[in-house]
Design a binder for these strands. Structure first.
Lengths: 193, 193
DNA sequence: TTCATTTCTTGTCATAGGACAAGAATCAAT
DNA sequence: ATTGATTCTTGTCCTATGACAAGAAATGAA
């Protein structure tokens, strides 16, 4: 699959002119990463947006006690973007690390700005993505309040089976807001049913 | 205080031209609300952004068991905006209701679009606000995982004393993700210290 | 294959917070 | 002032999850 096809899937490019598509394909570039690589490190400014083509990554922050708390997983098809740092050009407090080898398609902040300002439809698509991310985050926040850990696990299993299948239990646990011990027990209970 | 002054505070209008300021002041209008009024109701599309000038409001969603969960408070100076519904033009799942009489300055979606597209600095300010909201939401999400209910209460007390002082305990409780009973006990413990 | 490291499971005990119910205090409207 | 409705506090008991520690299983490097 070439760039144009991938980008057509990721954004809604149906209304883009040929020259717009050209500009877009020239500004995105393929990258590959290896397990353990950091795509983003706290204290730096996020300079890229990456669409994951293969592999799995996770983002995490360090809590007041020094523990790593997983804030999100990024599997095939999802975008890796630290919104606050990328757009406001301030150092991030998050880290994003590859959990497996993989590859993606990335664009720099400058490239993004270029597209954002020159292609109205790209601007719309970008805004929609941002807003959707906002919505998803709000839902996650809500479910931390309203759902039990077991239900949150089941939801994750349903919406992101790749994560459950491939991510280490301890990372899934901090993502759910529980300890690895508790998650292990939840799994045992579920397997009994 | 007149519109221009208020808007100058809410946005960074220092670089706006006189005609831009005129357009802006003509598109924002004063509104007042009474305790109990709904500024936004679930199932409808959010059509306004409002800057609170006086009074206190809260937003809440209904959880799977039918309970009201407070998702945010809006005191003096803060903006009332349901991002997803406003920008994507889809029905919201949230409600926003006044906890006291008050007043604000509001702008419609159309007015906002007008400013957004015609004033680059407004666009920048808008994007910055959106991104900051994103950041705040992420932090809240994180603190639900990493902090005890007592600490979350203390943080709220520090950052939004108006809320603690004026909002009913039960709403503060659901905002913190605990029951009113627990919050009452937390307060007792804190008062002992 | 073997050894070391990391990951996952399990046990025991402790604790924060929930469920439910009953009072007390506050507030609102007549 | 009186009544009724909220709102807040408190008691008792219960449950989900955490802390800590010890194995078991899986993984990876030599």
């Amino acid at each position: 699959m070439d760039k144009a096809q991938i980008l057509a899937k990721a954004f809604n490019t149906s209304s883009f002119s040929p020259s717009e598509m050209d500009k877009m394909t020239s500004l995105f570039e393929f990258v590959s990463f290896q397990k353990g690589d950091f795509v983003l490190q706290q204290g730096t400014v996020a300079n890229n947006l990456m669409i994951v083509l293969e592999g799995l990554l996770r983002s995490f922050a360090i809590d007041p006690d020094g523990n790593e708390i997983t804030t999100s997983f990024h599997g095939k098809g999802s975008g890796v973007l630290e919104v606050a740092s990328f757009f406001l050009r301030v150092p991030t407090k998050e880290n994003t690390q590859a959990l497996s080898d993989g590859k993606g398609l990335k664009i720099s902040f400058e490239g993004f700005q270029e597209l954002f300002h020159s292609i109205p439809n790209f601007r719309e698509a970008g805004r929609a993505r941002l807003v959707n991310g906002f919505f998803a985050l709000k839902n996650r926040s809500l479910s931390m309040i309203t759902e039990s850990a077991e239900n949150r696990y089941l939801q994750l299993l349903e919406t992101h089976p790749q994560v459950i299948a491939e991510a280490p239990l301890k990372h899934i646990a901090t993502y759910l807001g529980i300890t690895d011990t508790s998650l292990s027990r939840i799994r045992r209970e579920l397997s009994k049913k």
